[in-house]
Amino acid sequence: MKDKGTKWWIAIFLAPTLLVLGLFYIVPIITVFTTGFTDWDGFGSPAFNGLDNYVNLITYDNTFFVAIRNLFFWSLIAATLHVGFGTLVAFILYKGYFGWRFVRGVFMIPMVISAAAWAMIYKIIFNDDIGVINNLVRQLGFSGFHVKWFFESPASFWAVTFTWLFYAVYVTLIVYNDLMAIPKEIHEAALLDGAGEWQITRYINLPLVKNAIGTGIILSVTARIAGFEEVALTSGGGPGNETYNITLMLYDGLVNYEYGYANAAATVMIILGVSVMLLINRVFKMNEKVY
């Protein structure tokens, strides 16, 4: 009887969470998935059209392949440079050098700036007339330097990349937290064994924060899959479709009343996101305890 009572209490306390999960996650995901197989303008009833939306999404022109290519390179940059930068900052902060609190505070500032505002800031930074980048290059003696960063190929790809490349605060935070959680005894034992600072970092700290780095990679790659403002508000996916991503394809579907098409794009995004999560979980063996 006691067991039964406990189960009831567990059920009671889980019920609100499960309800919210069901209403706000499971049901919308099922709706997105099912309406991806329909012709639906958002007004009338969805009409089943098989795989038409997926065929249209993938084969209509080269936009889908451009979006996938961009995603691949952006993910690669995110998993290496972006996460690497965030991790490096975390290790520097962990060392507690002079002024680390100030640096941490400054590094956190982007957290309070919306992605949309951030995109607009970068649009100004890369502006040919008043932007810092071009003016700096011209000051260095290249007076004819007039790259229109968001409107020329291949500059637009890199300009869009720069809008998020150094915005790695969340990576820094989770790695820093894991570093702080490493028991002091481990470091003391290493010091007694004669390990130097580099060896402690390389052979103790880095392996012990691998789960945090893995989480950072998942977060940053999925942010690339779902990224919208940094593209839509800067290059708009252009020139042509050179900086397109799947989110913009989804958006195109929405503004053109092709909700079925938009939801097919959303389904692709969900599948990609889950796949990335599973892959990185496996690569980093994140289910195993580190100590």
Binding site: K148, F151, E152, S153, G236, G237, G238, P239, G240, N241, D252
Partner: peptide, 14 residues
């Protein structure tokens, strides 16, 4: 969208 988005490619001769 599309007219403006493709104009840079027209200008550059792409």
């Amino acid at each position: 969208t599309e007219f403006a988005q493709n104009l840079p490619l027209l200008v550059k001769g792409d």
